[in-house]
């Protein structure tokens, strides 16, 4: 079964004259890690809202096409039912955390599922441990750092045992080292859940491709409301470069794509040092 199945989905926000999404067809299978990227305003977050059923239920506008999430038709199911199996982590965790302790935030979802108290406790423990923030259990969400807040938001999603998690620019508020560590914990989490026998699907919306390039299995580029590229990350990046789609291709790869044919480079260098030592093989360009 496809976790996500969008068929000719188009959407126009009320008050807008143009379609923000036009004729989107997208199938995502269980266990995939998909990066969705594209120029600013291309419709990335709108796709996430469709998958969550927030469109058309909470956003006014014209929706057409069919959308299924975990087999549920979004038109026929309320957002609350979709949210039970499918979690979303937003750009700004401040908008997502609202209780007085991290523990309460993480317990909020399971409490609303009316689970028995021992199960709620078990899930809170498990979620805090998986995300690595057990020490923050009693902390107030307002007193912890941005990276920790983002991890608390993830723990509060994990406690629902979702099959699909969408991250909408999860690192945009974080410094470079917290960003890298957050991305690592997201993929470590996926791995731990797999060991526990649960396969989750990840959809990550990001501009900062360099953080994700080594983790993802598939990359989608959205431009002007359409899916313009979809496939293996390196191929998609190369194609984006050729077609001058303004996405944030990591600097090293941008150089590689540009000079590879002229310089006879066969595969992407893993580091700047590797690139330069290749270019210097014949003894040129050394300092002094």
């Amino acid at each position: 079964m496809n976790v996500v199945d969008l068929r000719s989905v188009s959407f126009r926000y009320a008050g807008s004259e143009r379609n923000v999404l036009s004729d989107i067809n997208l199938k995502i299978e269980e266990g995939e890690s998909v990066l969705i990227t594209g120029p600013s305003g291309c419709g990335k977050s709108t796709i996430a809202r469709v998958i969550m059923g927030l469109i058309p239920h909470s956003y006014p506008g014209d929706f057409s096409g069919e959308a299924y999430v975990l087999g549920m038709n979004i038109l026929e199911n309320p957002v609350s039912r979709i949210a039970t199996n499918c979690g979303i982590v937003f750009q700004n965790p401040e908008n997502q955390l609202f209780t007085f302790s991290v523990e309460d935030d993480v317990a909020f979802g399971p409490e609303n599922l009316a689970l028995p108290p021992y199960e709620i406790c078990r899930r809170v423990d498990e979620s805090l441990r998986l995300v690595g923030i057990e020490h923050l259990r009693h902390a107030s969400p307002n007193s912890i750092s941005g990276g920790e807040q983002q991890k608390a938001a993830i723990a509060s999603i994990i406690s629902m045992h979702p099959s699909l998690i969408i991250f909408d620019e999860p690192t945009s508020m974080l410094d470079p080292s917290s960003s890298a560590s957050l991305i690592q914990s997201i993929f470590r989490l996926k791995e731990s859940l797999r060991e526990m026998g649960k396969e989750i699907t990840l959809i990550i919306i990001e501009h900062r491709i360099n953080l994700l390039i080594n983790h993802i299995s598939r990359m989608i580029v959205v431009s002007d409301g359409k899916i313009v590229l979809d496939g293996d990350p390196m191929t998609v990046l190369n194609e984006s470069f050729e077609r001058r789609i303004p996405i944030n291709i990591p600097p090293l790869l941008r150089i590689y794509f540009r000079i590879k044919d002229r310089c006879g480079l066969e595969k992407p260098p893993r580091s700047l040092q590797e690139l330069l030592s290749y270019l210097r093989e014949d003894g040129w360009g050394r300092n002094g």
């Binding site: 310089c263 290749y278 040129w284």
Partner: peptide, 25 residues
Amino acid sequence: ELGFSIMEEDFDEICDFLTRVFPKC
């Protein structure tokens, strides 16, 4: 890594610069 400074600003310019510097290109 190169041992000298680059005045170019965007990556297209940097790439052109590299291809000028290295005969391999």
